[in-house]
């Protein structure tokens, strides 16, 4: 089972936009390995260490949201892989109990791949969601690579983990 970093797709406009949510839970093991304090330049601790979701996994969540959007555009026939993180800016940390909302939009699309622009929102349990990040990603259709390298016919990108998510989100039967 591959790591899934989104819990559900809540909106899908084919070839345009996909919205997915991720609930950050203290039951997730990675949080117990990632405690970060906030320290000023002169070494003063302004917030003690607490479990936070690593920024790299937030980017992965956006990549999964964007990857599904790009894959859906060609009915999951293409092997869609993340080729480049063009930009990633996150302004605050995600802690247990919050919900992340990823909105991925296709900016460019060709038979070789797609450019996706993403917005990350964070909602605390009793607060309005706020935008905490902008992430721009480039996806490649693996079988259309410039080097002409051939890969197995089986679509190993959209495997069982993704298919389960797509089923529970009502995107596929």
């Amino acid at each position: 089972m591959r790591w899934m970093w989104i819990d559900r797709v809540v909106e899908l406009v084919p070839r345009q936009r996909l919205v997915a949510v991720k609930n950050v839970s203290l039951a997730e093991e990675h949080l117990h390995d990632h405690f970060e304090p906030v320290v000023t330049d002169d070494g003063r601790i302004v917030r003690p260490a607490m479990p936070i979701m690593p920024a790299s996994l937030i980017i992965e969540g956006m990549a999964q949201a964007g990857g599904i959007l790009v894959g859906h555009a060609e009915e999951f026939r293409e092997k869609v892989i993340l080729a480049k993180v063009s930009r990633a800016e996150l302004s605050r940390e995600a802690t247990p109990g919050c919900q992340l909302r990823y909105t991925a939009e296709i900016k460019s699309f060709s038979h070789a791949g797609a450019g996706v622009s993403g917005t990350v929102e964070l909602a605390e349990p009793s607060a309005e969601p706020e935008t905490i990040g902008l992430i721009e990603l480039l996806f490649s259709h693996l079988d259309r690579n410039m080097a002409g390298i051939e890969y197995p016919e089986h679509n190993f990108v959209f495997g069982e983990g993704f298919r389960t998510l797509l089923r529970t989100s009502g995107i596929i039967d």
């Binding site: 080729a83 063009s86 060709s110 791949g113 480039l138 490649s140 690579n145 410039m146």
Partner: peptide, 10 residues
């Protein structure tokens, strides 16, 4: 790199 050509093209 080759993948940058896709980015530059877009």
């Amino acid at each position: 790199e080759s993948i940058d050509m896709l980015d530059i093209g877009f």
